[in-house]
């Protein structure tokens, strides 16, 4: 598996950027061969700004707080949360949008943060597992996971809790079958699915009870 650091060393040599272009011009290196940008700048000013590949400053709205970070456009939201913002609840497991351990909620919808670019997440309301217990008191979904022993090693748990919260926000009174389908985007290799589904059904009752 590649890490951002590995690639950046390799890639810096052939950087393809406005800055690289200007530097290249000054240093007399052959960056002029980088087609598109040169052609584009010769024409009218492009209507859309192009950023990167060097790092850009971004602002993210996470759990109701504003965070600032500096990331290359290729940096995922997951890596930004974990490596820059110290929000390590979302886990990096498959890093290919298939296991669910990195699940977060973006504009009220569950998503895989490993497969979202951090630059794309600007202007959206992001919820992570850290936002569920602001006062140190467990969210009803987390409490239900505790009560039903819905984890073993626990590595998939933050993703499952967020997927469950997102699911219950849209389906407050689910059936067992709906819970099963609704959590179809998350994997647990310890096989705790039975406990997880019971936890979600209990959480639905508890949340409903509170609102009633």
């Amino acid at each position: 598996m590649s890490t951002p650091k590995d690639d950046s060393k390799k890639k810096r040599k052939s950087a393809f950027s406005r800055r690289g272009f200007l530097q290249g011009l000054g240093a007399g290196t052959g960056v002029l061969s980088t087609g598109i940008l040169v052609a584009e700048e010769a024409q009218a000013a492009p209507a859309t700004p192009v950023s990167g590949p060097d790092a850009v400053a971004i602002t993210l709205d996470i759990n109701g707080k504003i965070y600032k970070a500096t990331v290359e456009p290729r940096t995922t939201l997951l890596d930004t949360l974990r490596d820059q913002l110290d929000l390590t609840g979302a886990k990096r497991v498959c890093d290919r949008g298939t296991c669910g351990a990195c699940t977060i909620i973006v504009d009220k919808k569950v998503m895989y943060s490993c497969t979202i670019l951090a630059v794309d997440a600007q202007g959206k309301k992001i919820e992570t597992i850290e936002g569920l217990a602001p006062e140190g008191k467990l969210h009803p979904v987390s409490q239900a996971f505790w009560d039903h022993d819905a984890q073993q090693c626990g590595y998939c748990t933050p993703g499952f809790v967020m997927a469950s919260k997102g699911f219950l926000d849209r389906n407050p009174n689910p059936t067992y079958e709906q819970v099963k389908k609704g959590l179809g985007g998350n994997l647990c290799r310890c096989g705790t699915y039975v406990g997880v589904r019971q936890a979600v059904l209990q959480a639905a009752k508890n949340i409903g009870g509170k609102n009633a």
Binding site: S2, K11, V50, S51, G52, P73
Partner: peptide, 9 residues
């Protein structure tokens, strides 16, 4: 992942 430029028209 290789580095890339990004635009959001």
């Amino acid at each position: 992942m290789e580095r890339f430029e990004y635009a959001s028209p």
